[in-house]
Write a protein that binds this DNA or RNA. Structure first.
Lengths: 332, 332
DNA sequence: GCATTGGTTGGGAGCGCTCCCGGCTGGAGT
DNA sequence: ACTCCAGCCGGGAGCGCTCCCAACCAATGC
């Protein structure tokens, strides 16, 4: 019950290994008749290419890597991971979870040294430029998920935050909201500065009275406290735009504890949709980002980069605003 | 800037490739002095073993696989995934997300055919026995995460549900609860039947008046509705034990809509801890399963299985009950 | 009829590693 | 001083594939 190799096929077909290799890889060098015959024999024998042998010979590993840098309590990474992975599809994705940046870089170095992956996807909240710099020094091709764009050699694949911010603020402004605060947290697959800019630009265009951004810590507990402080200040916002679904739930909790009705006194929008948004009451209005598409794009851009093509930054399709029960007209 | 190979090291050290191989793999055949010299040169040259070459030669891929069978709306898989991965550590883990069982089996077959992985971790809610059967037919060594135990050739690694059920029900009984309903959902890395039995046995031992299990659908929306029906029946339960954190949040929502106070009228326990449990109000009492440990155990059991050892079922350390605000004395 | 061309095909050298086999060396035994 | 048995080490085959090179073939152009 040994697995067949191209040598077996060659012997069976009465040709050489080389011919079989060319035939099965669909490249020129064999006649159409021979190719068909070889293909047929390969199918009959149940042949499948040995990825290890191919990798050794071709110098490519045939896999890409993704390291999740996960300080223990950063929330909200997970729901997106599966969407992303679903988008990547059947490409071989080597995954590793590490506690900090050093371990992340060590993982890249190890993968590079052992030739386990051909390239990596850069993910997670707040990937600073130095991470990209170190990565190019290591010599691993990479694609940055969620930006930042404009980095030479490391194409970014991201979701259009400007469009999302425009949609959300436009919707809120139409409901009469004039004071909107953004709660910034550890958003995944999104570049924090890009969101900040998008928010500021959209607010400016709409002429909102207040459009601040409040940063919460990265810990799980920091969210509710920071939000509560925002809500009890003089002239509090009438709407909150939260970077993650978990922060939005925290906003719901904080509002209830401050005696504010949602959406009567306060509207809440999550800048990330998830099953959790549908589950809570009131259900959260949310921006649905095309994460599966993002994953697919990232994989194909990386593939093009590996093939030697000059891959550039690419933006996924426009995110959609899903309105549910957590948003309503501003109290006059 | 070519990467060094053992041939380079051999030339540098004035020995043969074979000696270098033995020296660097710590196996007998070279003297201690030579070994040290070779090791030093390898370090100076920045040598790292090529996993592909090693895989080709050794017949081993050096990676294990995990397929997530994810019908679009099954909730609650994600938070555990990262914990599990963190536990697996630096072992190479090939991950793929597929839409259904057929695709899952196809992925196994492909991995097997291309020799991409040496074995797989079986995960996800409700892995039926036929999945295991098909897997052994494919010929891929596997370890079942969360059970079921007692399957020849496919060792199970699981968390002690019986202990958890005993702890939770003992705690609730001590608070005066006599009617407890378990809300069963798509729990991950847990065998559903094992939980059902554990729950029944523990309830029986404590002599509880009511200890039913109510099954919700696998969809995200089915949870709240089913829970609501449980709460409005005559002689409703005074405590709910929910299989997942998301179901527990759904219980909180349902209780509020039914006008029940938590924990005044109803206690809620989540049979899975997560950051979400800490975030909501009241914070959810929960069973904390040692998932990182589970991941580590699974990886080591699989490694032993691959090494030819006769690996048996193994149970992770006892889960801990974390009490928070969602549980209190039963209303008399 | 002969050299030239373009398309096929066979042969074989790697890719970097593991592991077996046989030759070499040293020290102990007589 | 000679044999003998270890322990070390060099040499090389093999893993399954890719890809280069040379040999071959038929058809064409003169």
């Amino acid at each position: 019950m040994k697995r067949p190799t191209i040598t077996d096929i060659a012997r069976e077909a009465g040709v050489s290994k080389g011919a079989v290799s060319y035939a099965l890889n669909g490249r020129p060098g064999v006649s159409e008749a021979t190719r068909r015959r070889i293909t047929e024999i390969a199918r009959d024998l149940g042949w499948a290419p040995s990825s290890t042998a191919r990798a050794l010979s071709g110098g490519r590993a045939g896999a890409i890597g993704l390291v999740l840098d996960r300080p223990p309590d950063v929330l909200g990474v997970e729901p997106f991971l599966t969407a992303l992975l679903a988008g990547i599809g059947p490409a071989s994705l080597l995954l590793q979870v590490v506690p900090d940046l050093d371990a992340e870089l060590a993982a890249y170095r190890r993968w590079r040294g052992e030739r386990k992956v051909d390239g990596v996807l850069l993910a997670g909240p707040g990937h600073a430029g130095d991470r990209i710099g170190e990565l190019t020094r290591i010599g691993l091709p990479a694609v940055a998920l969620g930006g930042p764009p404009g980095h030479p050699g490391v194409p970014a694949v991201w979701v259009d935050d400007a469009a999302a911010a425009g949609d959300v603020l436009g919707y809120l402004a139409a409901l009469g909201h004039r004071r909107v605060v953004r709660i910034a947290g550890p958003a995944v697959f999104a570049h924090p500065r890009s969101r900040a800019e998008a928010f500021a630009v959209a607010a400016d265009r709409l002429g909102l009275a207040v459009a601040r951004t409040v940063h919460t810590g990265h810990s799980g507990e920091a969210g509710p406290g920071a939000i509560q402080r925002v809500l009890v200040q003089p002239r509090p916002p009438t709407a909150l735009l939260c970077d993650t679904d978990v922060l939005a739930v925290a906003a719901l909790v904080a509002a209830r504890e401050a005696g504010l009705a949602v959406p009567g006194d306060l509207s809440v929008v999550s800048w990330d949709d998830s099953p959790l948004c549908r589950l809570v009451r009131p259900a959260l209005s949310a921006v649905r980002r095309p994460l599966a598409e993002l994953g697919g794009l990232a994989a194909s851009v990386l593939a093009e980069l590996l093939a030697g093509g000059q891959a550039g930054d690419v933006c996924a399709s426009r995110p959609a605003l899903v309105t549910r029960g957590s948003t309503g007209p501003a109290r006059p």
